[in-house]
Every structure is written in C-alpha cells, then in structure tokens.
Design a protein around this nucleic acid. Structure first.
Lengths: 198, 198
DNA sequence: CACCTTGAAAACCGTACACATTTCAAGAAA
DNA sequence: TTTCTTGAAATGTGTACGGTTTTCAAGGTG
C-alpha cells in the first residue's frame, strides 16, 4: 500500500557540479609504476591542501597556479676521502632528495639570494642562495636574515659579555652593528643552509 | 588446402615476463587532477631514463630504490640588499624548487659529502654536500671529483702554461698534484654546487 | 645440429563502465 | 512563507576488461 512518490523526480540541471571534487578540477586515470605511488599520493594530498587554503582565503576559487615540475630522486651519498668502496661494489648508499634535506618545514621556509661580501667568513658568497627557516628561534650565534631600517641583511646575531646584542659581520672589512634604540630591527628568520654556485 | 599448424602451440611458462616494461616493475592506474598530468608525465619519463641507465651500467638490475617523498615548491626568491618591496606587497617573486635548481640532469647527477679542508678557498667546507654532474666535460678551471689511485678527492682541474695538467687544492696548506704517469686518475664528474650547513 | 618460423601464454596498458557521491528543485509539512 | 524531505540528474572515482605487446619453446628446415 505504498502511494506513488511525490517528492524529487526527473528534472534537468540537477546533479553534481563540475569541479566539486577535492581538487576543483576534473581528473584522469593514468598508469604509474608502483614505487612512485607514495610520492604521487603525497603530491595529490598537497594539491588538495593547496586547493582548500585557496578557497578559504579567496572566495573566488583561486586556482593553485602553475604546478612545480615534480622531482624524482637524483642519486646518492658516498664518502669522499679515504676508504671509498671498490668500483665493483654497490656505490649507491642512499637516495637523497634536496628539498627533503634542506627544507624541514615547507610552510616556514623561504629563499633569499645573498649580496655583498660581509659574510664570507661564514661561507656565504655573493649570489649564493640562502635557505631561511622562520620557525627557528633566533639565538646568540645564529646567522639571521634581518630587516634593519627596512633594508635586508645577513649577519650573525651575537651578544657581548655585557649582554648587549649586535649583528656581527664575518669579514673584518665590515663593521659590526650594535642594536641600540635608534634602529628598527625585524628578524625574518634563521639561515640553515647556503647553496653556493661554483 | 591448409594443413593444420604444427608450430607454436599451447605450452606453459611462455608469455611475457614480469617487469618487462619501461620501469622494470608493475604499474597501477590511479586518478589524478588534470593540471598535474604534465608534471607526473615528466616524472615518469625521468624514471624510465633512470631505469635504462641503470640496466646499461650494471647488468643486474639496480632498482632505483625507495622513492623520494615528493616535494612541492617551498617558497621564493627576493633580493637581499636595498630596495626591498614593501611589507604589504606581494613578497613572493618566484617559486623555487631546489631539485630543479640544482639538478639539471637527474640521470647524470649524484651527491658526495666533502671531507677535509683542502678546498676551503672554493667555498667547500668539511661535511658540505657536493652536487656532481657527470655529463659536464671536465675542463681547465672546473672543480672535479676524481679518483686518484682509488681514493676520491675534490680538487680544481688546472693546466700550467706549459700544458701540464694538475689538480689544484684551494688551500695553501695543501700541495697541488701533478698528473704524471705514475698516477691512476679517473674523473667522476664536475661539481656544480656546494651545499653548506651553518 | 643450428637456425628460423610460429601460435599460445602471460604480462602490459588505456579507458569504459559500474558504482558512489553530490546537488538540485518539486512538492509536502509546518 | 519558510523549512524539510526526497528521488533523479550529473559528475566523481576505482578497477575490471579487451586489445596489444612480448616472450617462450615446439616443430620444421637446411
């Protein structure tokens, strides 16, 4: 004794909307080697998160820009000096990913290109790329990126025995900078690595 | 008037072999957003090339190991010195991928950890990671990884005005090495970048 | 005996398809 | 009028399937 349904029913223009998935765009099935699946899965998750963030921030869907060409594992680490394995042996010790090695917290990391020679003593040459982590607490002895009166510089953050903070240049030709009240100082982050181009 | 075929026929253990594809391993179909397809395709191509190289060099298939957790684009490049954009502006100038920046030819690149202080003058400190490209022609003035009588070293490849090749240490405390006949020298590759840990 | 020919076996691969999920608006209910 | 209920529409998604490619060894050939 069921009466005929009177709700719902046939009607055009209903149905799921295009781009209503986690990526905001259509997908396609492609075939990949199994060993790459975890990598690609990570990539997909990242894309999802990107899309979420963008839709939260801007109401209009801001499509996540051009994507970065993805990178595989280059090669390996050996030891340089004495005691190198014989040529017939298995050279490959470990697969290394540079982003993994140098970027601990992607959301807090940025890069800056160095200028000038004031930090030669710390191994920082002109045009080197500096890896900067904003999540690391600036402390005595750390090399920092600082905005000094609006100008960005790289220096080592130091403290005198009297407890006075100053920015130390690692090159005798450059003066240290005492942090007195006349200066407007903002520390942008701590330099973790230097990439030098030969 | 066709006689019944007498060749071929039913037989177990015939058929295509496992891992006989371009990757040397089984594949799986997964669904991905369309904008990522070019990236992933590039990844696959690279994997194929890697596999080719490895099977050429070692007869035993050296499978490219566990895959690297994939990396997105960390952040950006700004200019360091004067003229920095105002805080309210769009800081992000360019997305940078370290693997992309440092590894031009993944199939020909490997990493080595430096030991000793013989190349301090070139900005190479102990424990630095060196990026080595095997596809670059060793030439006068290039910093190279060389196996000297079976021991690996980093030196600058140089030539005297008389045309004699030698390996130059960039530290006055270390001697240069003349390449006379008594030495067995194999050059492994040219160092393109130095990654220094502060 | 060495080599060639040949068809079935077995794995590979793109994509179509079945099933799941989401959205819409017509009606009923409040 | 507003809110709730509901079934069909429309798109998303994993994977099974047909067609393709590669490999093997039996049997024929010289």
């Amino acid at each position: 004794m069921t009466q005929p349904p009177t709700h719902g029913g046939s009607r055009p223009n209903s149905g799921r909307k295009k781009g209503s998935n986690a990526y905001g765009e259509t997908t396609k099935a492609i075939r990949v080697p199994e060993s790459l699946i975890p990598s690609i899965k990570a990539l997909l998750n990242q894309r999802k998160q990107q899309f979420e963030q963008f839709t939260q921030q801007h109401n209009t869907v801001f499509l996540p820009k051009p994507q970065p060409p993805q990178i595989p594992l280059p090669l390996f680490i050996g030891k340089v000096a004495a005691g190198f394995p014989s040529p017939a042996d298995d050279y490959i010790e470990k697969n290394l990913d540079l982003n993994e090695l140098l970027v601990q917290k992607p959301a807090a990391t940025f890069f800056v290109q160095a200028q000038g020679e004031s930090m030669l003593g710390a191994g920082i040459h002109p045009n080197d790329i500096l890896v900067v982590d904003r999540s690391i607490e600036p402390a005595d002895g750390k090399v920092v990126i600082a905005a000094l009166n609006g100008e960005l510089t790289v220096k080592r953050l130091s403290k005198t025995t009297e407890g006075v903070w100053y920015l130390k240049a690692e090159n005798p030709q450059f003066p240290d900078i005492l942090l007195n009240d006349g200066l407007e100082l903002v520390i942008w982050g701590v330099v973790t690595n230097v990439i030098h181009n030969l």
